[in-house]
Simulated assay, not measured.
Amino acid sequence: MKTKRFCYSCDLKDDSKLIAEYKEYHAAGNAWPEITKSIKDAGILDMEIYITGNRMFMIMEVDETFDPIKKAKMDVNNPKVQEWENLMWNYQQELPWAKDGEKWITLEQVFKLK
Rank of each mutant, 00 (worst) to 15 (best):
K2P: 04
K2M: 09
K4H: 10
F6L: 14
F6V: 10
Y8D: 02
S9W: 00
D11L: 15
L12G: 06
D15G: 02
S16C: 02
K17A: 12
L18E: 15
A20F: 13
K23R: 15
A27P: 02
G29P: 04
N30Q: 06
I35W: 07
S38E: 09
I39D: 08
K40I: 05
K40Y: 09
K40M: 13
A42W: 00
A42F: 06
L45G: 00
D46Y: 08
I49H: 04
I49G: 00
Y50F: 12
Y50H: 14
I51Y: 14
T52H: 13
T52D: 15
T52S: 15
G53V: 11
M56H: 02
M56P: 01
F57K: 09
I59E: 03
V62P: 00
E64M: 09
K70A: 07
K71Y: 12
K71H: 14
A72E: 04
K73E: 11
K73R: 15
M74E: 02
M74S: 08
D75I: 08
V76R: 15
N78R: 13
N78M: 06
N78W: 03
P79W: 08
K80F: 00
V81Q: 07
Q82W: 02
N86D: 12
N90I: 01
Y91P: 10
Q93C: 10
E94R: 04
L95P: 01
W97M: 13
A98M: 05
A98H: 06
K99M: 11
D100R: 04
D100Q: 11
E102M: 00
I105N: 05
T106D: 10
T106W: 11
Q109M: 11
V110D: 11
F111L: 01
K112H: 13
K112D: 11
L113W: 04
K114Q: 10
